[in-house]
Simulated assay, not measured.
Amino acid sequence: MNYGVVSQEQLEQIDEILTEKLIKIGVDCVIIIDMAGNIITARDNGRSKYDVYSFAALAAGNFATVDAMAKLVGEEEFSLLFHKGNDSNIHFSKIDDELLLISMFGKDISLGFLRLNVVEAIDQIKKLWPRNE
């Protein structure tokens, strides 16, 4: 899918969605990246100490690796990834073929609650994101 140019107004609306749906429920940091690891936008809770640029590059590589593994087992893709740690967790979800939404959050948020909010955020973002058909 080819994308048009994202306006400043659209980007601000996307940031508002990320803040309302994810940051306000307790997510530490949320990033939208393209599959090359370029950051489209990032929001955090003001206390996050993540290096989002390094994280975005590594996340894109991680997602590409898992995509290749999916094909090895006969799946077209694994559209969702989750890494659980003792204190920090990372949730990856595809917005579409070009974009990933990555949420970093602690143990105070359940995965189910996060996933529900991610799905709602992605639905709203898709309505704003420009496409060249």
Rank of each mutant, 00 (worst) to 15 (best):
S93Y: 05
E9F: 07
K107G: 12
K107S: 15
K94H: 13
F78I: 13
I125M: 03
L11Y: 07
A68F: 05
C29I: 12
D15M: 12
E12L: 15
N45T: 10
Y50A: 10
W129V: 11
F78R: 08
V6K: 13
D28N: 14
P130A: 15
M1N: 09
D123A: 13
N38C: 09
K126G: 02
E133T: 02
E20C: 08
D67E: 09
V73N: 00
F82P: 02
G61S: 13
V6L: 15
Y3K: 13
E76R: 11
S93I: 00
G4N: 14
K84Q: 13
V27W: 01
A60V: 02
G61Q: 08
C29Q: 08
L114P: 00
R47Y: 13
V30W: 00
V118D: 00
M69V: 09
A36S: 14
Q8C: 04
D34A: 07
I125C: 05
I17C: 02
I31H: 00
L116S: 01
N86V: 13
L100C: 03
I17W: 08
V5C: 10
D34E: 11
R47V: 14
D96V: 01
L101K: 00
V27M: 03
L100S: 01
H83C: 06
S7C: 14
Y53H: 14
F82W: 10
M1H: 08
F113A: 06
I25D: 01
F63P: 00
V30A: 05
A60Q: 00
R43D: 07
G26H: 01
G26L: 05
V27T: 07
L22A: 03
L111W: 08
G112M: 00
K21L: 04
L72A: 04
N38H: 14
L81K: 09
V119M: 10
L80K: 14
E120Q: 10
D87H: 06
E77Q: 15
N132C: 03
C29T: 15
G37Q: 08
I102K: 01
E98M: 12
D34T: 10
K94N: 09
N2L: 09
I39V: 15
E75T: 03
E77T: 11
S48Y: 06
L81E: 00
A59P: 02
T19V: 09
L22H: 01
K107H: 08
G37D: 11
S7Q: 05
D87V: 14
A59Y: 07
Y3H: 15
